[in-house]
Design a protein around this nucleic acid. Structure first.
Lengths: 114, 114
DNA sequence: TATTTAAGAAACCATTTGGTTTCATATCTA
DNA sequence: TAGATATGAAACCAAATGGTTTCTTAAATA
């Protein structure tokens, strides 16, 4: 049923690395083979390949063999978990604003509570 | 101006650890001193304290000395960055839905694309 | 067919991470 | 004041992380 396709790696941990976040943005636009992808990063192809493996195990990218190429593309579905997690805190965000009159998006110091 | 208050630690990296995510949920409810907080976790107080330090450096918690206690509470503000990051991909998610007829927010199995 | 190209596997390495225990210090309280 | 309590700092450690280089294999091509 609606269970994740491949989640050997945690989504939160997968997106923790800035290189992997950049990979996701890159692969959101279009499908690409590993060599082309690695051309966008200042590290070895092997290193990029490892990051892709982690993203793949978190279900965030899909891979497809085409000849000798391995083409990757984004699968945003597991990011729903991030959204749901965030949504929980959004509640407190609202509460805080209302109840404690936090000065949101300002440089005013937060007023001590007592 | 509206810049983050303390971001020696990356927010994405801060929420990558499950213990720290649990800490955020715990501290969302109420302010607590370190000893009380650490009672909720199967590890040493010092370990919890280190996690709190990381959350603090990411701006996700505020600390306040009260006598000999150090009380922590959630500050959800930096989570906005997560939301913004996520929002970018939500766009692709929508696209996929439209183009590939994904079944969103249901328990139906995702239809294979080919 | 011989050669080039694409990619992963393996071995390795330095640094970071997440934990520990011990110790020092500041603040309560009997 | 003496002792108990709350906490962080320091030193330490094993495992995970993010990178490297080398080697092998499969597919495309001259």
């Amino acid at each position: 049923m609606g269970e994740p396709l491949a989640t050997k790696h945690d989504v939160f941990q997968a997106i923790a690395d800035p290189t992997r976040r950049k990979l996701l943005k890159l692969l959101a636009e279009e499908e690409m083979p590993v060599t082309v992808i690695s051309g966008h990063f200042p590290m070895s192809r092997t290193a990029v390949s490892k990051h892709l493996r982690i993203l793949s195990e978190a279900g965030l990218v899909r891979e497809r063999r085409v000849g000798r190429e391995n083409r990757f593309r984004l699968d945003p579905q597991p990011l729903q978990e991030i959204k749901q997690w965030y949504a929980y805190f959004e509640r407190f965000w609202e509460n805080k604003m209302a109840a404690l009159q936090y000065l949101v998006e300002s440089d005013e110091p937060v007023k001590p509570e007592q």
